[in-house]
């Protein structure tokens, strides 16, 4: 049984009547690294958010370990979200909070409401937060405010926050688009490490095809909300590339 299965998924945004996704089908095996590519506006963010239902799909089904997520109550969905980490293009840290507080927030799904509202976390969660920060090399920045960090460092805090969730699935929405090339690779390597060492399934959207080729085991390409390619990176030739990105596009290298 595949880890994640997406069946006939469509999303139409009522506001503006945008057909963001149309009849998307694919599945991801456990431990796979799937990369989503496509022009901006092709529906990558929407697809990722439909998986953890930050965006409610219009129709279609999503399964995780055979469990149909699209049928779950909000409460049950919150329980499932605990095992789905997510990182974002704009990092989405709470800027005024410290790095440690941001990382601990990843644990909220496991913490009972009242203590967490008072800001109390169990000792082992704090211990765990330190371990996660150590893993992304930011232990010394624990008590620094998040907005004092560089972009790459902020994204690593985002990764640590996702790690706190002990995820089985990691969704990454253009995690390196706001970063320069060198930093991009360092951040991508952390994600790759989580995929390889912890066996976490990763679905990441990436802007550059070169990055997708370098890190993806499999590539899924979207155009105007529809899947136009699903296969190994090597299979994307010049013709396929033009089909995904349009006739005028030129492939850019990012090192």
């Amino acid at each position: 049984m595949a880890h994640v299965v997406v069946e006939n998924l469509s999303k139409i945004y009522e506001r503006g009547k945008v057909r963001a996704l149309w009849n998307v089908n694919f599945s991801v095996e456990k431990g796979e690294f799937l990369v989503l590519i496509g022009l901006s506006g092709s529906g990558k963010s929407t697809l990722l958010r439909c998986i953890n239902r930050l965006v409610e799909p219009t129709s279609g089904r999503v399964f995780l370990n055979g469990l149909e997520l699209t049928r779950l109550s909000p409460r049950a969905m919150r329980r499932v979200r605990r095992r789905i980490g997510m990182i974002f293009q704009q990092f989405n840290l709470v800027k005024r909070a410290t790095v440690l507080q941001n990382v601990l927030a990843g644990r909220l799904g496991y913490t009972s409401t009242l203590p967490s509202l008072l800001g109390w976390f169990p000792k082992r969660d704090i211990q765990r937060a330190k371990e996660c920060l150590e893993r992304v090399g930011l232990l010394d920045k624990m008590y620094v405010r998040a907005d004092q960090l560089s972009g790459g460092q902020q994204q690593r805090v985002g990764i640590a926050r996702a790690l706190m969730q002990e995820p089985e699935l990691l969704l990454a929405d253009e995690p390196v688009s706001a970063l320069d090339p060198a930093t991009s690779h360092s951040v991508m390597q952390y994600i790759e490490q989580i995929n390889k060492e912890d066996g976490v399934t990763v679905i990441a959207s990436l802007h550059f095809l070169s990055l997708a080729r370098r890190y993806g085991q499999r590539i899924l390409a979207l155009r105007a909300g529809e899947v136009v390619f699903d296969g190994p990176p090597e299979a994307i030739d010049d013709r396929k590339f033009k089909e995904i990105y349009g006739e005028e596009a030129e492939e850019v290298e990012i090192r």
Partner: peptide
Amino acid sequence: PGPVEAITATGANRLQVLRYGVIPQ
């Protein structure tokens, strides 16, 4: 809205989202 989305994605409930995503801002 970013942090709110991020905290929601961790499986936090509404009150926790308010406390950790909205109030610090």
